[in-house]
Write a protein that binds this DNA or RNA. Sequence first.
DNA 1: TATTGTTGACAACGCGCATTGTCAATTACA
DNA 2: TGTAATTGACAATGCGCGTTGTCAACAATA
Lengths: 222, 222
Amino acid sequence: MATTRTYLGASPEERRLARRETLIKAACDVYALRGYRGATVKAICDEAGLTERYFYESFANNEALFLALFQSVCEKMLNAVRAAGTAAAGTPEKKARAILTAYYRGLQAQPPQARVFVIEASDVSPAVHAIAGATFERFTDLLAEAWHGAPMRLDPMLRAGIAGAVVQIARDWIESGFARPVKAVVDAALRISSVLGAALDETNSAANKTKPVMTRKSEPSR
Amino acid sequence: MATTRTYLGASPEERRLARRETLIKAACDVYALRGYRGATVKAICDEAGLTERYFYESFANNEALFLALFQSVCEKMLNAVRAAGTAAAGTPEKKARAILTAYYRGLQAQPPQARVFVIEASDVSPAVHAIAGATFERFTDLLAEAWHGAPMRLDPMLRAGIAGAVVQIARDWIESGFARPVKAVVDAALRISSVLGAALDETNSAANKTKPVMTRKSEPSR
DNA sequence: TATTGTTGACAACGCGCATTGTCAATTACA
DNA sequence: TGTAATTGACAATGCGCGTTGTCAACAATA
């Protein structure tokens, strides 16, 4: 029962990876249709046209699949957003607007996925929660950099607040069925994120090289 | 099998309500200890010293109990916060600070409950989600009123953003084990909420009596 | 004290789903 | 073409927990 032969023109590894991809795509559809909670292993396998055995061949369980998918989605989102920020020339506000517009447009382009990955993801599991947190730390750093013009140390609580605002706006927008134009959504997020410009100017005017002396005792990241 | 006798000095209704209260208190402890997901009906009943029969006598299911408890917690929180805002005299900023301080202090006073009701509550069920949403609409209205000096129509997206910021700051703070002083937390939230002052002055300078003419097409509440 | 409402301990059933196992049909290769 | 790897369909098991039901022990009233 070794696994060594080519089959249908593909090596064992190729077949395994192909199945893995098939499962991921199927899972994405099922998540979008039923939500993560309602997505049973069987439903995903049916959608993929594969059996449970091949599910467990590539993933320890449903959560592991979701985690892999979520991680990839987050990376893509961050890349798109970073690119938009880099491409945008002009005032800090224009850069920040470009970042936020890229984010919300990305959601609007994939409504079912947006629902799953923005609204449901946070409480799928601690691991997913951690990825979401790290992703939005980076997202907010990009925003701060846009407003300030250079990489920036941010107060963790302020960063959390901005991230929370951006995400909550996304949630409400998604739940409303994208009832409002992107511009209105971006405007609200932009207005809130603008405190990054002011806040940074106040507290860290020259703190991007030397660490501030009055730093807090500890910094539990999340 | 009518239920009419006094028993241990209490009428049937009194006994039923006493059991209900016992269950609610027990549930609160179990939620705090294991989280909502880990709180089985049996665990709550064991903690209460009652049997499952009496659970279903007062609640349709676990979620119904949580909903009742959550609703009461939200009401108390809003009352406390409203009182703090009313009591605080002085500049808009001082009023807003009083509101936020009351909120975060309230969380700090009950760490396990804070974890459950701030972090877990949102995704217990759609009904709970709705309560949470409505609560923070009102919370943000209080903040806006503090900043502006009078009740105010708020852009829904802006309101969502502010609410998201306040809550996300709370979440991070709780997950850090309340690592930072309340003042630092309040400062961050206050800074973000300050856009309410600016935003309202811009868009609705005299709109608290007549509805603004340029109102948006529709307003899907959430 | 006898009867009946009331309570607590606990068994029993059902359901959904994850996870593993069986077996015949299909495909590659010697 | 025959043998062994590979696959798909599907049954079988196990587990957790919600929910309902049983029955003996306890308390109140006539």
